[in-house]
Computed example of a mutant assay.
Amino acid sequence: MSNAPEFLVFGATGQQGGAVTRALLEAGRGVRAFVRDPYSEKAKSLAADGVSLAVGDLFDRASIDHAMKGIRSVFSVQTSSPSGLLTDEQEVEQGKSVADSAVSNGVAHLVYSATGAAGKGHTGMGHFDSKSRIEDYVRSLPITTTITRPASFMEMMMLPGMGLNTGVFNYFMRPDQSMQMIALHDLGRINARILCQPDLHAGRVIELSGQDITGKDLQEAFSRAAGRPIHYQRFSEELLSENNFLKRLTALVDNGVVAGIADIAALEREFGPMLRVEQWLSGPGKTLFENALSAEPSGIGLR
């Protein structure tokens, strides 16, 4: 790529940052990715695609400052505590450090990706409340910002242990209960558009989702895609009583905090058509779905 990097992307070897990086590359824009290990397979793949690598650590402010040099806009996302890699306080520390560095280095625009559960009051789940705290901090700084709040990723449904390989898919909502979801492809292209058009999105908080979908809808879509019956059921009460993390998440789906409140029609008017789960299953999610169908039995993939 001949373009000098305009955009610095954090989390570029992960799901969200990776999706944003791909979308920016497809738009012909120059990208710099902040990576800890330049020799990892994902980092080497980014470099092969023309991405400039800035090597550093999110606990090392000097390395963040170095990566910011000459950058116009930043996409900021941090790892959450359910990964087991850091605490909620450390996530907040990292989010603040990225934002402070952007201000200090004269970056024009910061896009912070939070979660659909952010900004809706105290949830009692640290990895959601941490993002609300980062949002509040980002908004307090003298820099142009946009905050995006993605709904649950369609890709999350393909985590091990959800039951597709047994013909019984288990998830959070009741069969007739609706929950919003978004494909990472759409998350990536929308955030990339925002980065490329900062004046249109300055100061906005944008809830992101691609579809309202029920358990019954998933049952029908999965069955058609698999070519055989896939039954949908909510996580069992027995499992929820044993797994406090899933129990608390399910309660937040029930009370609406995690169910999603995006105006999907308005998003489509502004950013174009969003992938529905059927399209995702035959497109970006096809390999993930096929792998989940044929996976060896395992425990629930959510912590």
Rank of each mutant, 00 (worst) to 15 (best):
F7K: 06
L8E: 08
F10A: 06
G11P: 14
T13S: 06
Q15D: 14
G17R: 05
T21K: 13
R22T: 03
E26I: 00
G30W: 05
A33Q: 10
Y39N: 15
E41D: 14
S45M: 13
S52R: 04
L53V: 09
D60T: 15
R61F: 10
A67P: 05
K69H: 00
S76G: 08
T87Y: 00
D88E: 08
E89Y: 07
E91T: 01
D100A: 12
S101M: 09
A102D: 00
V103T: 13
L110F: 10
S113R: 01
S113P: 03
G121A: 11
G121V: 06
T123G: 13
K131N: 04
S132C: 07
R133I: 11
T145E: 09
T146P: 13
T146Q: 11
A151G: 04
M157Y: 05
L159M: 13
M162W: 01
G163A: 03
N165F: 09
F169K: 01
M179Q: 14
L184A: 11
L195T: 12
Q197E: 15
D199C: 06
H201S: 08
R204M: 14
E207A: 14
E207Q: 09
D212Q: 07
E220I: 04
A225N: 02
A226T: 05
P229G: 13
R234A: 08
N243Y: 02
N244D: 04
N244P: 05
A251R: 08
L252F: 00
G256Q: 09
V257H: 01
A262C: 12
I264F: 08
G272H: 09
W280V: 02
G283M: 08
L288P: 02
L288D: 05
N291T: 13
A295D: 01
A295H: 05
P297R: 03
R303H: 08
